[in-house]
Design a protein around this nucleic acid. Structure first.
Lengths: 94, 94
DNA sequence: ATATTTTGGTTTATTTTATAAACTACTTTA
DNA sequence: TAAAGTAGTTTATAAAATAAACCAAAATAT
């Protein structure tokens, strides 16, 4: 009945990140920071966790002379997100 | 766009408790324990938190000679649950 | 009768997680 | 050239979840 919720996704910030990445092809660090209202430190940490789990890929490059961090959801991440949403439905559907 | 998720509800166990209490008039400690698969200690702690927030009411009595803890969702809790679900939709809807 | 286990919890300690603060390195602007 | 801004990372702290230990009484087995 009530399935376990992937603890990696059951976090407001990480869920927000994944939610955004579901709807765009890729997103920059600063974009994610703005959209999620997260501090840079917190965002950095949570992106690393998602990356280590293989839910997102992170590419670090430079735009001009400034560092540029670009994130994309992976196929694994997409699947995990969908599974999470399905599990969640059992909790929130009347 | 992405609203904050009530941290009191954004917890697998507390959400599970609330989800169950949404669908029944009242539930006993042992029933909640079985349905959520929680340990008694964890359940006890989380019920207290929900109770302190006014999201549930807890009545302690005896059935025969054994202690009996009965929980109900409050109007405040019902409202909080609905708000939480609405906020969540922004995260999980495509 | 009296140990032993079970029931129905609570309290306390530990681990994990989230968050904030401090820091790095480089760039732009005054 | 000093100050402030950008784009982050690392480390420390606070909060949360969880597990372990405990308690009191009741039921069961020896």
């Amino acid at each position: 009945m009530l399935k376990d919720l992937d603890p990696l996704l059951h976090s407001q910030l990480r869920l927000g990140i994944m939610s955004i990445l579901m709807s765009v092809e890729s997103a920059e660090f600063t974009y994610l920071k703005e959209k999620t209202n997260a501090t840079a430190g917190n965002l950095s940490v949570q992106l690393d966790k998602l990356s280590e789990a293989g839910y997102i890929s992170i590419e670090k490059s430079f735009r001009g002379k400034k560092p540029l961090t670009t994130c994309k959801i992976t196929r694994t991440g997409l699947k995990a997100f969908e599974d999470y949403v399905n599990a969640l439905k059992f909790y929130i559907n009347p």
